[in-house]
Simulated assay, not measured.
Amino acid sequence: MTEYLVFRLYAPLASWGEPAVGETRPSATHPGRGAILGLLGAALGIRRDDDEGQNELHESVRVAVKQRSPGILLRDYHTAQVPGERKGVVYRTRRDELSAPRKVINTILSSRDYRCDGLWTVAVWLTPGATLTLETLEQALKTPHFPLYLGRKACPPAAPLDPRRVTAERLKEALDTEFPKLIRDEQQALRLSSESLYCWEGEAAMLDGKEEGVESNDIWDSPLNRRRWQFGPRIEYRRFVRLEEGS
Rank of each mutant, 00 (worst) to 15 (best):
129 G>L: 14
129 G>D: 12
130 A>L: 06
130 A>H: 07
131 T>Q: 12
131 T>R: 14
131 T>G: 08
132 L>Y: 06
133 T>E: 12
134 L>Y: 05
134 L>T: 02
134 L>Q: 06
134 L>F: 02
134 L>A: 03
134 L>E: 02
136 T>R: 13
136 T>C: 04
137 L>K: 01
138 E>D: 12
138 E>T: 09
138 E>A: 09
139 Q>E: 11
139 Q>V: 09
140 A>E: 02
140 A>Y: 10
140 A>V: 03
142 K>Q: 00
142 K>C: 00
142 K>T: 01
142 K>S: 04
143 T>C: 04
145 H>M: 14
145 H>C: 13
145 H>R: 15
146 F>G: 02
147 P>I: 14
148 L>S: 03
148 L>Y: 07
148 L>N: 07
148 L>V: 05
148 L>G: 03
149 Y>L: 03
149 Y>A: 06
150 L>E: 02
150 L>D: 00
151 G>F: 08
151 G>A: 10
151 G>V: 00
151 G>S: 10
151 G>H: 10
152 R>H: 08
152 R>K: 11
152 R>Q: 00
153 K>F: 00
153 K>S: 05
153 K>G: 10
154 A>M: 01
154 A>C: 11
155 C>H: 05
156 P>V: 12
156 P>A: 05
156 P>H: 13
156 P>L: 06
157 P>C: 11
157 P>E: 02
157 P>W: 10
158 A>N: 12
158 A>C: 13
158 A>I: 12
158 A>S: 14
158 A>F: 14
158 A>G: 08
159 A>G: 14
159 A>T: 15
159 A>F: 11
159 A>E: 09
160 P>N: 10
161 L>R: 07
161 L>T: 04
161 L>H: 00
162 D>E: 09
163 P>N: 06
164 R>E: 04
164 R>Y: 04
164 R>N: 01
164 R>F: 03
164 R>L: 13
165 R>D: 06
165 R>G: 13
165 R>N: 12
166 V>Q: 01
166 V>E: 00
